[in-house]
């Protein structure tokens, strides 16, 4: 199918991009990698009047070490992220989850920032960003903001960003030594979206789980932090299968999973419990990768 007509702007600086977006008004859309947007346009599910192409804005590129965190430019592609030695060394959960996004060709075009700003709760990266307490750096004509992940995802396909605001980069905290990671993605075919996904980071010390971060994909209109599980799991011996399972049985607390072609809510709740347990065990290095 074929998109409806739109105007096109290709700013070459962040300032120009913000200005173009502001000038274009509320029916403008930002074009990042386009891997979600272009199918929507082709199916005529969206009718933007103007597309602001961020592909040539240098400020949005790059992955940098900034001490206690790394900064991933919004326009870094999924492929850049997966292959980044920095990401793999300092924030491997990001690389693990990004490698499950779509397929290689889509990962060559799709961007880290685009996937997060799209805020699809079935997408893999929002839950990861939430689990890791990432911080979103944005820019509008009037100001730059830092938005914590916990506040960034507002509703289905909706973020805390204002219409004139552009996502510039994401700060991913380095968790340091002693952490293990896993992203457990459950889907019917390799191409299908996660029925449920679980992002987990586990810090083990002295045989017990000292700290844990867990967030869920596709268990509500936004990614969901599994706070009850995190509380219940802290201090547990990960080898204690019964206690771990009991703790993970709280994984669906506070979720409102959708009903769709691939699963009903009660099944998603069940999956969240099982997959959270598996993700934590894998992150704690108890099951082979």
């Amino acid at each position: 199918m074929i998109p409806a007509a739109f105007d096109y702007a290709r700013p070459s600086s962040l300032g120009d991009a913000v200005e173009a977006l502001t000038d274009a008004g509320e029916d403008a859309k930002v074009l990042a990698g386009g891997q979600s947007l272009l199918p929507l346009l082709r199916l005529r599910l969206a009718y933007p009047t103007v597309l602001i192409d961020l592909g040539r804005v240098p400020e949005l590129q790059g992955i940098a070490d900034e001490g206690d965190h790394i900064r991933i430019g919004a326009m870094a592609t999924h492929d850049d992220v997966v292959r980044s030695p920095l990401v793999n060394a300092a924030c491997p959960l990001i690389a693990l989850a990004t490698a499950t996004v779509a397929d290689p060709a889509v990962r060559h075009r799709g961007t880290f920032g685009g996937a997060l700003a799209h805020a699809d709760p079935a997408g893999d990266l929002p839950a990861v960003a939430l689990a890791l307490d990432c911080v979103f750096l944005t820019r509008s004509a009037s100001e730059g903001r830092e938005i914590p992940a916990a506040e960034f995802f507002v509703d289905y396909l909706e973020t805390a960003m204002d219409p004139g605001e552009i996502l510039v980069a994401v700060k991913v905290p380095k968790l340091g030594a002693g952490w293990g990671y896993h992203y457990e993605k459950f889907h019917r075919t390799a191409q299908s979206w996660a029925t449920v996904g679980v992002a987990a980071a586990v810090h083990r010390d002295d045989g017990t789980i000292q700290d844990v971060k867990v967030a869920l994909t596709n268990m509500g209109s936004t990614p969901v932090r599994a706070g009850a599980v995190e509380t219940a799991v802290r201090g547990l011996d990960p080898h204690d299968a019964t206690s771990l399972a009991a703790a993970c049985d709280q994984a669906d607390q506070g979720t409102s999973p959708p009903a769709d072609l691939h699963a009903q809510p009660d099944y998603r709740r069940h999956l969240a419990r099982v997959l959270t347990r598996r993700a934590i065990r894998r992150a704690a290095d108890l099951e082979p990768g």
């Binding site: 019917r188 075919t189 191409q191 299908s192």
Partner: peptide, 16 residues
């Protein structure tokens, strides 16, 4: 019809 695209009508890939 709900399965109007290949994102909804699931065809097996090489991995499946």
């Amino acid at each position: 019809l709900l399965t109007t695209t290949m994102a909804d009508y699931l065809l097996p890939t090489a991995l499946d």
